[in-house]
């Protein structure tokens, strides 16, 4: 009995010791020397691995930060300026402040605005639907509504709004990682500058067809009439391919463009209700 115990202990001890020796040498042999700052930087990042920075996950971004000589081109959109400030402190570099951004789906073609002209019956992803044909409505630019952006979002920031036809981005949850921008096969999603109180004035349309065609397909399509362009005093609006675009970096939220739009393609969000007298409008926000 006792001899068995001794054997057992000795055998186990020998196995353990051998394994330890092997492990030690293997560890030595394959040792990877890494800049310890990479761990520090990674620790200060949000850890969502969303890829919003353009790198494959937070660690890759941390490695890029450590290698970089200045942080001008690098930005963690999720962490924002606070995180980048911490990263800068760790690396002894200068932080470059960037405007926070928020995603926006530039299509307002919900079912009541954009009549269906066919119905899709296949695998319900936008990528596959758009590879089969232009979509269920006559607008070949509009949202397909199958929610590839919803699937891509790691932050629950997209409400699919089943039955509506177009998802909605929830401003308070969106971190502007850009995953949805890449996921959208119609290129509808734009990262816009985040304004106070999440206010925004946007052309919610990407239709580049001629006015008549666009209007026929969708009642809230931009027809490229240039009325908003003429109204804007800040050069924020450009018209290209029968389509108006409001540059969020230039827009001052004066809201003058929205009322002149004949198709209501320009939408304003999160503003207090307009007062009856048009003159007052101008002073509300700027």
């Amino acid at each position: 009995m006792s001899i068995t115990v001794v054997y057992t202990i000795v055998t186990l001890a020998v196995i353990g010791a051998t394994a330890a020796v092997i492990l030690y040498f293997v560890a030595q042999k394959f040792k990877v020397v890494e800049d310890p700052r990479i761990d520090d930087v990674e620790g200060s990042l949000p850890g969502a691995n969303c890829g919003g920075c353009g790198f494959a996950g937070c660690r890759a971004f941390a490695e890029a930060c450590v290698k970089a000589s200045d942080l001008g081109d690098l930005n963690c959109p999720v962490g924002g300026n606070d995180t980048m400030g911490q990263v800068a402190t760790i690396l002894g570099l200068e932080a470059v402040a960037k405007d926070p951004r928020v995603a926006f789906i530039r299509c307002n073609g919900t079912c009541d605005h954009r009549p269906k002209t066919s119905q899709f019956d296949g695998a319900t992803t936008c990528a596959i639907a758009s590879s089969v044909y232009s979509g269920e409505s006559d607008c070949q630019f509009g949202c397909l509504g199958y929610g590839d952006c919803y699937d891509a979002c790691e932050f629950d920031a997209i409400d699919l709004r089943a039955g509506m036809g177009v998802p909605l981005i929830l401003d308070d949850k969106c971190v502007a990682c850009g995953a949805c921008v890449d996921a959208c096969p119609k290129d509808l999603i734009e990262l816009r500058k985040r304004m106070p109180k999440d206010r925004k004035v946007v052309v919610a349309c990407r239709n580049m067809d001629k006015g008549g065609v666009a209007k026929k397909a969708c009642s809230v399509a931009c027809i490229g009439c240039s009325k908003c362009f003429k109204e804007c005093k800040f050069d924020a609006i450009t018209i290209e391919n029968n389509l108006a675009f409001i540059d969020s970096d230039k827009c001052k939220l004066c809201r003058k463009c929205a009322p002149v739009c004949p198709t209501n393609a320009i939408i304003e969000l999160n503003f207090p209700p307009r007062k009856v007298k048009p003159e007052v409008e101008v002073e509300t926000n700027s």
Binding site: A123, T125, S131
Partner: peptide
């Protein structure tokens, strides 16, 4: 929908 996804992957 096997082919739908295979075609997508192939693309």
């Amino acid at each position: 929908p096997l082919l739908d996804y295979i075609r997508f992957g192939k693309g």
